[in-house]
């Protein structure tokens, strides 16, 4: 029967178990992942099962790395994610967090767009480091993604998005994440995508400032191609700033919505 060992197809005898393959292929492996789940007790393998053997702390080769990274995904998920094409408009608190989550799950292609540079006041909620201060956000996020998951193809565009360039900028993606700070830009992007780009899906956000309840941040499906995340009213303003926890909650609502769309789950 065929099984996948570290994501590579191999033929094994009927009756093989997870631990019997560890004996043969990687005796010193102390982490055994069976169909996306770490096991402590031996299991009998079935045709098409996936098994990953990892020695804790060992640095894998680039060839091995991708297989090991996807081993915690449920089988069948990785192929779809790898083929997905996502655009992120804005690389602030929302966009940088969405980019990192999507990179970690192994999205095949991410197009990131921003016109700004990293500054100290970004570090309270955005995924950048002190060493990135002064760097273009597109370059900084590109560097971060390469360090998290070098198998993601990243395209960057250092540009201010306006009504005229939206269609061209997002031609190469299927799903667009609206991650701007400015409400006028948010409305402009959503209106343009829904009106002029009927084949695209947009995942937008509105209302995530402060430290109000986690549970007021929700995901709504407004239309077939329009998802909206946030509490709808907590605006960033004097006395009510943006902070990492709530912005990251909203960003990861967006990232999980993207993942669900990729996996064919269109309801919220």
């Amino acid at each position: 029967m065929e099984i996948f060992l570290n994501e590579k197809s191999i033929m094994v005898d009927e009756g093989s178990t997870a631990f019997s393959l560890r004996e043969i292929f990687k005796k010193d492996a102390d982490i055994v992942i069976y169909n996306g789940f770490i096991i402590k007790e031996d299991v009998l393998l079935k045709n098409q099962d996936r098994l990953t053997l990892i020695k804790r702390g060992e640095i894998p080769t680039m060839q091995e790395l991708e297989g090991l990274m996807v081993s915690r995904h449920t089988p069948g998920v990785h192929e779809k994610i790898k083929n997905a094409r996502v655009g992120i408009a804005g690389l602030g608190g929302l966009g940088s967090n969405v980019a990192v989550s999507l990179a970690r799950i192994g999205i095949g292609y991410i197009k990131v767009i921003d016109f700004d540079v990293v500054e100290p006041s970004n570090l309270n909620r955005q995924q950048y480091f002190i060493k990135h201060i002064g760097m273009k956000k597109t370059d900084a996020i590109n560097q971060l993604i390469a360090e998290i998951n070098p198998f993601v193809k990243v395209e960057t565009e250092d540009i201010f998005i306006d009504e005229k360039n939206i269609e061209g900028l997002f031609k190469s993606v299927d799903i667009i994440v609206e991650a701007f700070d400015n409400p006028n830009s948010k409305a402009l992007l959503v209106n343009t995508v829904l009106k002029k780009m009927p084949s695209k899906i947009i995942v937008a956000a509105s209302g995530m400032a402060g430290y109000f309840s986690n549970n007021r941040i929700v995901t709504r499906k407004v239309g077939d191609n329009f998802y909206l995340i946030g509490d709808g009213e907590s605006e960033a303003r004097p006395g009510c700033g943006l902070m990492a926890p709530r912005v990251a909650i909203a960003a990861n609502h967006q990232a999980n919505t993207v993942l669900r769309i990729i996996m064919g789950e269109r309801d919220v």
């Binding site: 602030g92 937008a204 509105s206």
Partner: peptide, 10 residues
Amino acid sequence: VEIISFVGGG
């Protein structure tokens, strides 16, 4: 009629 009114922050 459905009106989505965006607030700033991101």
